[in-house]
Design a protein around this nucleic acid. Structure first.
Length: 262
DNA sequence: ATGGTGGCAGAGCCA
């Protein structure tokens, strides 16, 4: 089978229910992982997604903030969550497909504006979250696993519009990138997007604060699809759907997709 | 150096 998976920070699943339905209709991934649903699980508009053919949902939510959901055309089994860094936030949920593949949907804390944990608690929480993720998958080596989500870190020079300008900007600081690459290495994860598209600038997020986001193009690649080493070679057809950032009342993130021949 | 926008909730926090 070919499994197509998409990840998208939706920034309110209720406000953008119609955009989610449109993506499901136009792209028809087998699985869509959402972050920043900003709703308790019982407020997720399940009917609209069920009507589009996505009757299997595993989610964690909270009022107003965070929230992750996995919508699927294929049957899913809830595989639990990890409270990385002990924040008590709805930032991770896992699901298992019938073929045994486990999907981890992750929403890493943004980390505030000041890249110094002594001055900014949220930055420390972000580093701690990624360190816990590193340790978790070091101790529970992922197999037949896919990890997707808004990891809120752009690791490479060509994952940001201006590497030098962003070295002191949260999401691209050296200490964050080090945590990111350590976590990737500890789980033996493979960055499927960059396996498929090794060269050139690649962004999945453009700030709302730039009115002319498309022309200015000051983007960052914050959204990622990783696979465990054993299934990485099955990954292909990676895409970032930049036009979605231009839809009516959009999220500030574009969906990222990949397919796996399993 | 600053401020720029958006969502939730209904002021201020978070991104």
């Amino acid at each position: 089978m070919t499994l197509t998976i998409a990840t998208w920070n939706i920034n309110s699943v209720r406000l953008r229910e119609g955009l989610v339905a449109r993506l499901l209709t136009e792209e028809a991934p087998d699985v869509l992982c959402l972050q920043e649903c900003k709703a308790p699980v019982d407020k997720i508009p399940l009917e609209a997604f069920r009507a589009a053919g996505y009757g299997h949902i595993v989610a964690r939510g909270q009022k107003g903030y965070n929230g992750v959901a996995i919508l699927s055309k294929l049957p899913l089994e809830d595989a639990g969550e990890v409270d990385f860094a002990g924040l008590g936030h709805a930032r991770h949920v896992a699901a298992r497909l019938e073929n045994g593949v486990v999907i981890h949907n992750v929403y890493v804390p943004a980390g505030g504006d000041i890249p110094d944990r002594a001055l900014n608690v949220k930055f420390g929480q972000k580093l701690d979250f990624v360190a816990h993720l590193r340790d978790f998958f070091r101790d529970n080596a992922p197999q037949k696993a896919i990890l997707v989500g808004d990891l809120n870190i752009a690791p490479r020079e060509d994952d940001v519009w201006n590497h030098k300008a962003l070295l002191k900007i949260v999401s691209h600081t050296p200490v964050e990138v080090e945590h990111f690459t350590d976590a990737q290495a500890a789980g033996n994860w493979v960055d499927i997007t960059r396996q498929d598209i090794p060269d050139g600038r690649l962004y999945s997020w453009w700030s709302y604060r730039s009115p002319d986001w498309d022309a200015a193009d000051k983007g960052r690649r914050l959204d990622h699809i990783w696979a465990s080493r054993d299934i990485a070679a099955a990954g292909h057809a990676s895409r970032i759907l930049r036009p979605v950032r231009g839809w009516e009342q959009p999220s500030d993130h574009a969906p990222v997709l990949a397919s796996f021949d399993l």
